[in-house]
């Protein structure tokens, strides 16, 4: 293998890559340089991986109760983080709880980004009557405090994971739609959109290519900051009995059931809260870092 020949043939591509770099490449490099964001990313990755692989790595059965071993303190033999009020292994339940809590944090935000983003971009691009019709409705929903809206929705739809997913999605559609609308309105008036029209681009192509590409960054970074709120609200719904139902392992629900034991086994009672805190803070800090990383113009 001739190294020299290879270097010559690869040279233009290599030069090109070093000069500009891919968008994701640059964003990733930015996050890598930001120490806090890096730690958050590792924490999140750890939580996510342990949640995904919970069935394989968990030391015990999350639903196996035992009255004899209830509320064991952390670091007990065989029970690293102790047991809950029904004698189930805390570590196992925290790992499993990550599955519900993380999906309840991420899924509604993704759904709301798709729906709210579509609404906002449509309203922003076409303006006038279409904008008025969409944004009036959105603003009515936006007027309710998010927690109140989520509780009301979940109350109306009834408890359960799917219903709390729907209510959380509905909660996040208005703020995302508002951000999408305002960013789109700005982008729409940019010269490059006009320039695209001047080269004969159709409205569809302008929206898909120029508008979406330019509004995606702000919308995604905003949406990523909502994940932490989604985790907290979904935990809150579970805590209130409107989300996950027992015996399912969910951080919010665990917080509720261990609440009565707070004087007996305070550390056990606090652990689910610590998980909620760690996950939501990590999401928040990481999304902050992403915000600056994904700004191409910076």
């Amino acid at each position: 293998m001739s190294a020299a020949a290879e270097r010559i043939s690869l040279a233009p591509a290599a030069v090109k890559r070093r000069r500009t770099g891919g968008f994701w490449h640059r964003a990733a490099r930015h996050v890598m340089r930001d120490k806090v964001a890096l730690v958050c990313a590792i924490v999140l990755l750890a939580i996510a991986l342990s949640a995904i692989f919970a069935p394989w790595i968990a030391p015990a059965d999350p639903y196996k109760t035992s009255m004899l071993r209830c509320l064991l303190p952390p670091l007990s033999p065989k029970y690293l983080l102790g047991t809950d009020e029904l004698g189930r292994d805390m570590l196992t339940r925290l790992l499993y709880g990550g599955r519900v809590s993380l999906s309840m944090g991420i899924a509604p935000v993704i759904l709301a980004t798709i729906v709210g983003g579509a609404l906002g971009v449509t309203a922003g691009y076409f303006g006038r009557h279409i904008n008025m019709a969409i944004m009036r409705v959105v603003n009515v929903f936006y007027a309710f405090p998010s927690v109140l809206l989520a509780v009301a929705m979940a109350g109306v739809l009834g408890s359960g994971i799917v219903n709390s997913l729907i209510s959380l999605t509905l909660v996040f559609i208005p703020p995302i739609a508002r951000v999408a609308e305002s960013v789109t309105t700005q982008v729409r008036n940019q010269d490059y959109v006009e320039a695209a029209r001047a080269t004969g681009a159709s409205a569809g192509r302008i929206i898909v290519q120029h508008v979406l590409a330019n509004v995606m960054g702000p919308i995604v970074t905003y949406a990523s900051s909502l994940v932490s709120i989604a985790i907290i609200i979904s935990s809150g719904l579970s805590f209130l009995g409107l989300g996950a139902a027992p015996p399912l392992a969910d951080w919010g629900l665990m917080l509720n059931t261990l609440r009565q034991a707070i004087y007996v086994a305070p550390v056990n009672a606090v652990l689910p809260g610590v998980m909620i805190f760690a996950a939501s803070v990590s999401f928040n800090l990481l999304s902050d870092s992403l915000r600056s990383a994904m700004d191409v113009r910076a």
């Binding site: 006009e194 001047a198 159709s202 120029h210 330019n214 191409v296 113009r297």
Partner: peptide, 23 residues
């Protein structure tokens, strides 16, 4: 759309803003 481009094309005043920053 068929006229804009092949028949008549336009150069804008501000090259800073007339090119899409993300492409």
């Amino acid at each position: 759309e068929a006229v804009r481009g092949p028949v008549g094309a336009m150069i804008f005043q501000e090259p800073m803003t007339a090119l899409d920053p993300v492409f």
